[in-house]
Design a protein around this nucleic acid. Sequence first.
DNA 1: CGGCGTGTTGACTTCGATCAACCAATGTGG
DNA 2: CCACATTGGTTGATCGAAGTCAACACGCCG
Lengths: 247, 247
Amino acid sequence: MPQNNAAKKITLEVVKTACSNCNLRELCMPLGLSRQEIERLDEMVSSRRRLRRGEHLYRAGEHFDAIYAIRSGFFKTDVLIEDGRDQVTGFQMTGELLGLDGISTEAHSCNAVALEDSEVCVIPFSHLEGLSREIRTLQHHFHKVMSREIVRDHGVMMLLGTMRAEERLAAFLLNLSQRFTARGYSPAEFYLRMTRDEIGSYLGLKLETVSRAFSRFQEEGLIAVQQKYVRILDTDGLKKLMSHQRG
Amino acid sequence: MPQNNAAKKITLEVVKTACSNCNLRELCMPLGLSRQEIERLDEMVSSRRRLRRGEHLYRAGEHFDAIYAIRSGFFKTDVLIEDGRDQVTGFQMTGELLGLDGISTEAHSCNAVALEDSEVCVIPFSHLEGLSREIRTLQHHFHKVMSREIVRDHGVMMLLGTMRAEERLAAFLLNLSQRFTARGYSPAEFYLRMTRDEIGSYLGLKLETVSRAFSRFQEEGLIAVQQKYVRILDTDGLKKLMSHQRG
DNA sequence: CGGCGTGTTGACTTCGATCAACCAATGTGG
DNA sequence: CCACATTGGTTGATCGAAGTCAACACGCCG
């Protein structure tokens, strides 16, 4: 039955979540592994998971047992407190890891939501720890990834603690641009996957302020913006804006 | 020569930077290690380093090769940008680790400064990685510590992004109180080791605003404050203040 | 003692929040 | 396919919390 075979083959292909033939490898995994070591990574990734726009990958409080590598799509993470306030703690794109916050207490401390249809690799954390006890470069790479997250958070603290509204938005746009570039997309032109409200939450601003800053940038010829579509016209202008001292 | 012997003994004691007889072990290292494993930790810690108030443990840009466990004292970490702005990213006390930010690029990304005379254990990072490849519980503990740092940073982002001045200061005081308590000190009474300016930088406020908030808390009978000496009179009052919605 | 760090307080300003109206895009059911 | 609802975004007017500028007080150390 050739049809059956074909179906089986496809299923296998889908189920076989191989790092060894994933072209995102360099983003989420260490370079310079031997062929053998790369094949062992395949064992580590237990499955994939597809999410539709708006779906939660995990929620705060849920038990932690895996981290996730984004194969495609776009996510946000946020923290809520009882009184209703919430803070978006980050936006994650292809090749980035989600779930590192859960290691500390074995429970997730934030929510991860897909902002567009997405697919992630599920990496059971015990597998990752096991394998990184054997593969030194994997261990080191993982430590670097966690550390990079800490450094990134410090950058956000700097942004929230010292920058004024327009500086924050400029920093945000430049950061997005740089990350899209690293993934082979245009540095100057992209669709925002998040709402003004979510940008505002991330930047510690109200959505109206974000909207006004977008308009102002447009008036000044720094960007062209129409809804979620953004084109950066003057990168240097944005950079200059960012380094203007407060006051 | 009995005197010589005594001197030698003391020197040895000082040089021998043993985790195995350090009473901070539970704070910075995993529980439930075997006697043998604990002795192996001793090899990991290569030396100690004393710092005077105001001295830098490391500076942004310096090469990273070790992390530091605080044996005694008090530190701040901060990031500067060219235009002169700076952001205090954290205050660290006994039993906490410093230097995790450096793993990512092999260079420190912030400055660590002693706010009082302090002593740290120097843990060469390659030793730590080596040992954690062998001791599973050490590996897991270290991952938890890094993850906890990420979660902590998210908390600060929430604070900076959504809280008003008095809420921030209340959160700050309660956090200090809780950490002092965990170390066996009074939960209600302590000396601040940092200036109003440093508190302000951490909380994203100007020093005048911090000073005013302190005065206000005093007027309302929540705390008694005199310079760097703080006594918390109404913990619940501070907590209530913290959970008041913006607006 | 005088000078400098640090902290407090007051008067005034400003940036971003708030409140509110309106518009554009998208989606849904008849 | 259109009428209508809903969600997301823009813009204006006003307000208020925190920043800024400035004067002064307090301790600490040489």
